[in-house]
Design a protein around this nucleic acid. Structure first.
Lengths: 340, 340
DNA sequence: ATCCAAATTGTGAACGCTAACAACAGCTAG
DNA sequence: CTAGCTGTTGTTAGCGTTCACAATTTGGAT
C-alpha cells in the first residue's frame, strides 16, 4: 500500500532537461565546460524535480565522503563542547559534515575502536580531542590515507599535527600576576596527575616561582572537579600562610572559593584565587574569577584548518605542523594584594 | 611514485577463502545459512587481509547509512552537550554513527538547511534538540522516509514524536518547596521570553502560587545567562519583601546569588534561591544551590530509543509518541525558612 | 535407490554517481 | 577548403555492495 516512492535521480533530471546524465553531473560539480544555457536548463530541472544528489554513490566512486570524524572525550564539559562547536562551524563552511565518536575513557583500545568506526564510515580525516598521549598514539594506527590532527592536548608527540594551548605560558601569566600583586608565593591546586595539560600548568607555575626566588609549596593532584577544589581548599584555608592560590581550572577554583568562604577567609582580601579556562559564568562567581582564558572555539577552528591543509598537501608529506595558541589573563575580582 | 594502494575488498576475501563474494557478504551480515566451516574460513581471510567493508557501497544499495543526524543549538551549553553525549552513547550501542549539524540561531530556514544537509548525507533518522517551535516545524519538512524526533523542547507540536521534561512540574516542585518552608510568596526570574521551556516554568510557578493563594509577583524575561540573573538580582535585592527567588535556570541563579551577596542579603538566611537544571557544579555555588534536576543524558538516550522504535515501525505510522520525563528537586543549602 | 525439501553456494544485475574517452560542433589559420 | 584546435556533449565502464534468483549439495523419508 505505501507506494514505493522513487526518489529523483540524475537520470530523471537529465531526461527533463534533455541532456545526458553526465552533463547533469558536470553542472553539479561546477565543471567549467558547460554552456550557460544548458546549465540553467539543468538547474531548473533539478529545482522542479527537487533533486538531491546521492552522496553515497558519489563517495563510492570518488572515495571522498566529505565527512570528517571527531574523536571526543567527556564532551559534556565546556572545553570539549566548545571545540566541537568551533570544529563543526568551520567544517560546514568548508563543505564537510562532522561525525562524532566519543570515548568513555582514554584508553588506547577505545581510541582504536573509534578510529576504526570512523574509517569504516569513510571519513576523509579525523580530529581528535586528545588530552592524553594514548589518543595521539591511537591516531597513528589510523589506516593510510586518513589524515589526523590532535587538538587540545600537551605537545609531546611529533608524529601527528597538533593544535594546543600553551599551558605553561598560561600558568606563568597567572603566577606572575599574583606575584606582581605582592604575594610572597603562590599555591597551586593541580588537576588529574596523569594529564599532560595539568602537568604543564604545574611546570609553568613552578618555573615562575623559581625564577622569582619564591618558595615552591607542595602540589596535590586529583581531578578537574569543583568537589576536589573544595576538599583541597579546606586544607589550604587552614594554613594562614596561604594568600594566593592558582587553580588548574575554573571548576576547581569554584570549589576553592567555597571552601575559603566557609572558612571565613574572604577572597580577595585575605586570599587571592586564579583559575584557568574562563568558562562562561566564571565572571559571576563570588567574587568574579580572575582566570586564564583559552579560546576553545578558536582552537577547534584552527585544528580544522590544519586538517584541511594537511589533506590538501597530497604529495608532500612534510613534517607535521604544530600550532600553539597563547592564552590570555582575564583579571576580575578574585585577586588583590595580600593583607597588610 | 606513491603506489596506488589498493584497499582489500570483498572479492579479495572471497578469492582467498575460495568462495564467492556473495558468501562473504552473507558472513558479514550474519546470514543464517552459511556452513560453520566456510564461515570461519571467510572470517580468517578477512582477518588476514584486514578487510573493512565499504559502507558507502552498502549504503548505496540498501539505502541505509547507519548514521543518525543530530540538529543541535548552542551545543556548548551543558544541557545540549549532555544530550548529545547521551544520544551518541546510545547510538553507538545500536550500531549507529552520529553526525551533527548545528544551527546558529533557531530560524526555520537554518533548520531546513540542516535537515537538507543531513538528508543528503543519507542519515537514517534525525534527532533535533528543539527548544523552539521553529525547529519542530522545520522537521516536518524532512523528506519522506526520514524519521525525526524532537527532544528537549516544550510539548506543543503533535506531528513529531518528542521527548521532553515536564518543566511545569519542575517549577511546581521548586515553588512548593519554597512555600513549604514558610515563604509568603516566591519571585521568579524568567529565561528568554520566546522559549516555550521558559514559559512552561513560569506557568508551573504561577499555578502553584495561585493554588496556594499567594500573591503572584511580576516576572521579567531576558536570557539564560548569569549576567541577566545578576542584573535582575540587583533589582530584587532592593525589595525587602523578596525572601524567595525561583530562577529559570542555574546560570541565572548564579547571577542572582552574586547580586544578593553584594547587596548584603545573605542566602539562605534572608533570601532563598532555587535554580533549574542542576549543572555539574551547582552544588559548589555559594551557597550550594537547591535546584531542579533534569537528567539530560537520559533525555538523549530516551530520544534515541524513540527514534529507533519509530524507524522500526515501518508499516504502522501510528500517532507519534510523546515521552515526558519528570524532573526532581535537589535540596541543598540555598533555601531556608524566611527570616523571623 | 529415489525423490523432495531444506540448506548452502554462486551468478548476474542493480544502486547512482564520476572518470575516461569518444564524438561532434564551431572556429581560426593556413 | 581543410587541418587542427577548443569547447561542449554523449557513451561506456566501473566504484563495492546487496538483492533476487538460479544452481548445487545435503539429508532424510519413502
Amino acid at each position: 500500500m505505501p507506494s514505493k516512492k522513487r526518489v529523483t535521480v540524475m537520470r530523471d533530471v537529465a531526461k527533463l532537461a534533455g541532456v545526458s546524465h553526465q552533463t547533469v553531473s558536470r553542472v553539479l560539480n561546477e565543471h567549467p565546460n558547460v554552456k550557460q544555457e544548458t546549465r540553467t536548463r539543468v538547474l531548473e530541472a533539478m529545482q522542479s524535480l527537487n533533486y538531491r544528489r546521492n552522496l553515497a554513490a558519489r563517495t563510492l566512486v570518488t572515495r571522498q565522503s566529505h565527512t570528517l570524524g571527531l574523536i571526543g572525550f567527556e564532551t559534556t564539559l565546556f572545553g570539549p563542547a566548545s571545540m566541537l562547536y568551533g570544529i563543526e562551524d568551520a567544517a560546514r563552511a568548508a563543505g564537510y559534515l562532522v561525525s562524532i565518536a566519543t570515548v568513555r575513557n582514554l584508553e588506547r583500545r577505545e581510541v582504536l575502536e573509534a578510529v576504526d568506526r570512523l574509517s569504516q564510515h569513510a571519513v576523509d580525516g579525523i580530529i581528535a580531542i586528545a588530552p592524553k598521549p594514548a589518543v595521539t598514539n591511537g591516531l597513528l594506527q589510523a589506516p593510510g590515507g586518513l589524515y589526523c590532527v590532535a587538538v587540545g592536548g600537551a605537545g609531546e608527540t611529533d608524529a601527528v599535527p597538533t593544535v594546543r594551548v600553551d599551558n605553561a605560558a598560561g600558568a606563568r601569566l597567572a603566577t606572575q600576576h599574583l606575584l606582581g600583586l605582592g604575594h610572597r608565593t603562590v599555591h597551586h591546586v593541580g588537576g588529574p596527575h596523569d594529564w599532560p595539560e595539568a602537568q604543564e600548568r604545574v611546570m609553568g607555575w613552578r618555573d615562575t616561582l623559581y625564577e622569582a626566588g619564591a618558595v615552591v609549596p607542595p602540589v596535590a593532584f586529583d581531578s578537574w572537579t569543583a568537589e576536589w577544589g573544595y576538599r583541597r581548599g579546606q586544607e589550604l584555608a587552614r594554613d594562614p600562610e596561604v594568600t594566593a592560590v592558582f587553580c588548574a581550572n575554573d571548576r576547581i577554583a569554584l570549589g576553592v572559593l567555597r571552601a575559603l568562604h566557609e572558612a571565613g577567609r574572604p577572597v580577595p582580601h585575605e586570599v587571592s584565587v586564579v583559575g584557568f579556562d574562563d568558562m562562561p559564568d566564571s565572571g559571576y562567581f563570588l567574587p568574579p574569577l580572575t582566570t586564564v582564558r583559552q579560546d576553545f572555539a578558536e582552537l577547534g577552528r584552527r585544528s580544522l584548518t590544519l586538517l584541511l591543509q594537511h589533506m590538501a598537501d597530497t604529495d608532500e608529506p612534510e613534517a607535521p605542523a604544530h600550532i600553539v595558541v597563547t592564552p590570555e589573563l582575564v583579571v576580575r575580582g578574585s585577586t588583590a594584594p595580600p593583607p597588610r
